[in-house]
Structure formats: structure tokens, C-alpha cells
Design a protein around this nucleic acid. Structure first.
Lengths: 334, 334
DNA sequence: TTGTAAGCGTTATCAT
DNA sequence: ATGATAACGCTTACAA
């Protein structure tokens, strides 16, 4: 240990770098000064070994490059960095399944917490593999106007972030209906995605309440290309629709482009389109998309709060945070 | 150590997990089986302490959420994961400067290598702070038709990836000129960005060679909104242009939208537009952008090769890889 | 092939 | 307020 030889003794250095330890201020200052000159930084691996805290947060995503994910990772990384953590990124295979291999692989890095944006894994499996790290789920509970369901009577069984979609979807449907839409289609996300099925459930409820019947189902997978092709199908093979509600913004872009460039229909005059997420690209003039916004900053703050609370009280009961959605009105409904 | 109590002795477990050690096959198999049952994984922090290899690769970016960066991070994470590494993500402040604080912070995590996509930091500084990790630069050398300059006579001074832009830019200018463009504007990237200034230099050279004079300079910063506003300015306050070459695709989208939606000009009939990068969004029908492509997979493979070669031979001279660019022709020139 | 012992850089405990 | 010592979980000599 360099700093020590240049200076005084051993553990003093450790104390100098830990705020809540007793050390004469002048001594601390001296040590920090020498440390800086010697370009010394405490080794977090060694620290992790004894403290049990790696200050690493594992983030598992299927696609870093989809705009919503990347914007979330961006915000999350910033927030974690401010709290002294670093983001450790892992990608699932294309099939969205988070297999045991990846989990085991990640476990080796000893993350303090794991945020799973992938839904196709049972909480029990994640918790089983990662004995040390605490997993956090993004959950889309079933809702009504009155509030949201709790499948587990006494609070959640795992730490989770509830995303409440009712308000935003209700507003979206109301707007489309207000502009005369009667035959409403829903473009799904990827097969069995929790986010997409929750959106579908809520949409069905809202539409039924408003006398709009059932949505016309269009199968997508959150990507542009699939949305584009599915929309062409809907109008060429199927009976079309006068409004399309997409499970995410990128899908909505595919719908709009298929409508305008392939089917020569006007948006919003002939067909209205609403998306979900409100990503950066949604305000681009070519799309100018009306969409249900999830407040990213709020969502990320909630996530970070969850992590910090859990780490400061490892034995606490399951934690929970809740964020809302709301409609952002732009130019694709009118 | 759990696995040991359940089984036989101590170091045997370590050997079981390291392929190139001598251990009776049946014993290894037994240990691995027991380990799996006990959900045991070797602790990489502890391993890093003694081996000096953390298997962490630090990636520093200004914006995870810009499409190009996120696509690169995505590909890189996949590639690193396949080689037994994990991506450790760090974000610079908005001003693009990579201050010593961040570097020191990162150093604490002991990455084996660092990829700096940020350009506003001197190689000497990076190398000085990160004594253990090897930094890798993305470099845009000055080029002519004949080849590219080496500012350093005997190969590079630091490991780096050279991105050769001449071919792609030459093709782009030829295409625009071929369709009758005479007054060509260049939309820059962010102030003092190496990528942007290298593109500008090459563009000037190519234009001069083709008798097109100097480009009309339009100041951007790689973002959509700035590109949009700058384009409106160029045509409302300035004298316009009949072709715009943007330093990146997102900027090109801003140009196109300003042209079409604000200035009521047609692309490509009235103004031709070319971008740079070929991101996923560039083939979206609303833009259908003609652009200079950097082959992402090739680029990422080169980066990973650089890392692996450096780690396997820490004392080797400075390493170098080179990737090309080429024009992808779509619908914004014609 | 296998086990023993030492040590990687840090912090917690117990002294002083 | 400060120092000595042990321990965190692992790997790499060296010895058997």
C-alpha cells in the first residue's frame, strides 16, 4: 500500500476515506492529500470482500438500444452514480428469457441489487439464484377507476415498482372517442409481455365502460418493422380501424408510417394513433405523437429509492413504490 | 465456504472452476455438481483481488440514450458478455468533459479496460489516472484518397480504433453532386467533437477536389432540436442550400423535419440530405435516410479484439484496429 | 493429482 | 484518536 509508506500508518488511510470514523481532521487532510498525489483510490473489490457491498447494481435488459430502455438506463445510471453506485449491464438473449446461466453469471459479480426489466422470469427464481442481491420488479397491476388490485393480501411479496396505467389509458380513449373514433385497434407488445397485457386489460375495461366494445387485436412485438407490417395487414387483409392504440411509441411510429406511406391514409384525419411511453423521438415533427407518458425521472427516482431503502434495511418487509401515467396530447389524434 | 464443507477440500473447488488446472475429471464433475446444488458461484471480487482481473470493462458515454450510443452499447455488452466480461456504465456530465472526479470514481471499481467514447479528454490524463486499466480510443484520423495520416511516426501511442471516413464521405458527395447539388451545407456535431471535425475536414477536401468550393457551415450538436432550429435559420436568415450533410443521423432527421414541416420544402426534390451512422431509425419510412454507414458489428468486434489482445499481452506496444465506412443509399438524395 | 500456507487490499474488533 | 490483528473468499506458489 503506497499511501501508507509515504505517510504514517495503515488503517488510518481506511478511516480517512470513510466519513463516519474518528480521525483527527488535520491527519485526514494530510492523508487525502498524499493519496491524491499518489493517485491512490481505495479498491472497491477489496472493500466489497469485507463489507459485503459491491456498490454495483445489475440491470438486465433485452434491448439496450430500444429508445425507451436506453433512456431509462441513461437516467438510472446518472442517478446511481450520484449515490455512489455503478450500473452493471447485462443483456438477455433475443428470446427475452432470462435463463439461469445469465443469472449465475451475474451473481458472480456480486451486485448489491438487481433491476429486472425483463418480465419472463418468476420472482422466486431470481430470488433463489441471487441470494445476496435484492431483485426489484417493475409491475403493472390490474386496475379499475377505484384503485389497483393487490394479488397478495398483505402488501407485495417482493420489492417492486407499480406502474399505474389506468389514468393515461382512460384519457387516451376518451380523446379518441371525443374525436369520433368508433373502431379501435390495439397493437400489442411482444408475446406475453406483462406491460403489454396489462395495457390490454385496462384498455378493454375502459372501452367496455365507454360502450366501445372490444378492441381489434393486432399482434406486434414493440418493434417498428413488425408494427409496420401488422398495420398493412390490418387494412389490406383485415377491416381496418379508425384508431390504433399501440403498446409503445416505437410501435406507433410503425403504424403511422404504414398508414401514411404504404396505405396512403392520413393521420389523424383518417386514422388516429396513440402510443405509450413518451420517448424522446415522439415529439419529432414527422410523428408528433399523442402518447401516454410514463414520467421517466419520477420512475427512476422511485427505483433508486427502492434500492437505497432496501440496502439500508435488508430485513425490512417487501417495499413498494407507485408511479402514474398521463396523456400527452400532440398531433396524431384530432 | 459452503461447497467445501459439503464436499472434500478447499483449493480443489477453485481448480474445478478454472479450466487450465489439473484436477481429476470425476472430482471436478462432482464439485461442479455440488456447487450447482448449493447455488455457489466463485466471488469475482475476491478473485479480482488476487488475480488482478476484475472482468469489468468501463464504458464512458455522454448520452446512453442517443440512438447511436445505445446501439453501440448494446452490441458491445453482448460481445463482452460472450467473452466473460461485464459492462460497467458511466455517464459524463452534460458538458461532455470527463473530469478527474469521474475517472477516479471509476478507477475504484478496477475495470480491466476502459472505452472512452468521449473525446474531450487527453489520452495522457486518462492513462495517468487509470494505472491498471487500459484505455481505448476511438480515433478519426485525417485522410486522403491515398490513406490516412499517422501523427505518430511509429504507430499509435495508445490503443485505438481508427474509423476511416473518406470512402463514405466521398461517395456521399459524389451522389449529391450527381443529382445536381451545388451549394452544400455541413451540419456540425457538438463543439470540438473529434468525430465532427474529422468529418468536416474530409468533407472540405472531397468538395475541393470536386470543384464544389467550401461547405456552408451550420452549427449543430448532434441533437434533433438543435438541427431543426439551425436548419430553419439557414433558410430564413441565411441563404439556404441545395444539400445538407449532417454529422449524424439524428441531426439529419432534424434537418429533414425542419425542411418539410416548417419550411415546406421537399426532400429530396428541393434539398438533398445525407446523414452519418446508419442507426436503426434511419430506415424508418418517414425519414428513409441516405447515410454514411459505420458497420456497428465490425466496429464492436474490433473493439473487443483490442481489449482481449491488450489483456493477454499487457506489455505489448500500442494496438490498433481500423474500420471503414460506406454510403447506404435510401430516399433523401435523388 | 492434491493439500498447505501465504497473501491480494480493505475494514471491524479490540486494544491502547 | 489511533494502532495491531484477524478476517473477507479466492488463487498461486510450493510441497507432498
Amino acid at each position: 500500500m503506497v499511501a501508507r509508506s509515504a505517510n504514517v500508518s495503515r488503517v488510518a488511510v481506511s478511516r480517512a476515506f470513510n466519513p463516519h470514523t474518528s480521525l483527527k481532521p488535520e491527519k485526514r487532510a494530510l492523508i487525502l492529500k498524499v493519496a491524491e498525489e499518489l493517485n491512490y483510490t481505495p479498491d472497491r473489490a477489496a472493500r466489497a470482500l469485507v463489507s459485503g457491498r459491491s456498490h454495483l447494481v445489475g440491470v438486465i435488459v433485452p434491448d439496450v438500444c430500444s429508445p425507451w430502455e436506453s433512456q431509462e438506463i441513461d437516467a438510472l445510471t446518472t442517478a446511481l452514480q450520484n449515490e455512489g453506485f455503478a450500473t452493471l449491464l447485462f443483456k438477455t438473449r433475443t428470446d427475452l428469457s432470462m435463463d439461469a446461466t445469465l443469472l449465475t453469471y451475474m451473481k458472480g459479480f456480486n451486485p448489491d441489487a438487481v433491476i429486472a426489466f425483463v418480465e419472463n422470469v418468476k420472482p422466486t427464481i431470481l430470488a433463489g439464484v441471487l441470494d445476496r442481491a435484492v431483485p426489484i420488479y417493475v409491475h403493472y397491476p390490474r386496475e379499475t377507476e377505484a384503485g389497483f388490485d393487490r394479488p397478495d393480501a398483505d402488501g407485495p411479496l417482493y420489492d417492486r415498482l407499480n406502474v399505474l396505467q389506468y389514468a393515461g389509458i382512460e384519457q387516451a380513449v376518451a380523446l379518441m372517442q371525443g374525436y369520433g373514433a368508433k373502431r379501435l385497434a390495439y397493437l400489442t407488445g411482444v408475446y406475453r409481455s406483462g406491460a403489454s397485457t396489462a395495457r390490454e386489460d385496462t384498455l378493454r375495461k375502459v372501452m367496455a365502460d365507454r360502450g366501445l366494445g372490444e378492441p381489434i387485436m393486432v399482434v406486434g412485438d414493440f418493434t417498428y418493422d413488425t408494427a409496420y407490417a401488422a398495420t398493412v395487414d390490418l387494412f389490406r387483409v383485415g377491416d381496418g380501424a379508425d384508431a390504433v392504440f399501440a403498446a409503445n411509441d416505437v410501435g406507433a411510429f410503425g403504424v403511422i408510417d404504414a398508414l401514411r406511406h404504404e396505405l396512403k391514409l392520413r393521420v389523424p384525419e383518417d386514422v388516429k394513433v396513440v402510443g405509450f411511453d413518451d420517448i424522446e423521438q415522439s415529439h419529432w415533427k414527422s410523428y408528433n405523437l399523442t402518447t401516454v407518458k410514463i414520467d421517466l425521472d419520477e420512475r427512476v427516482r422511485a427505483l433508486v429509492r427502492l434500492i437505497l431503502r432496501r440496502l439500508s434495511k435488508p430485513s425490512a418487509g417487501a417495499l413498494e413504490e407507485t408511479v402514474q401515467t398521463r396523456l400527452v396530447v400532440r398531433g396524431t389524434v384530432g
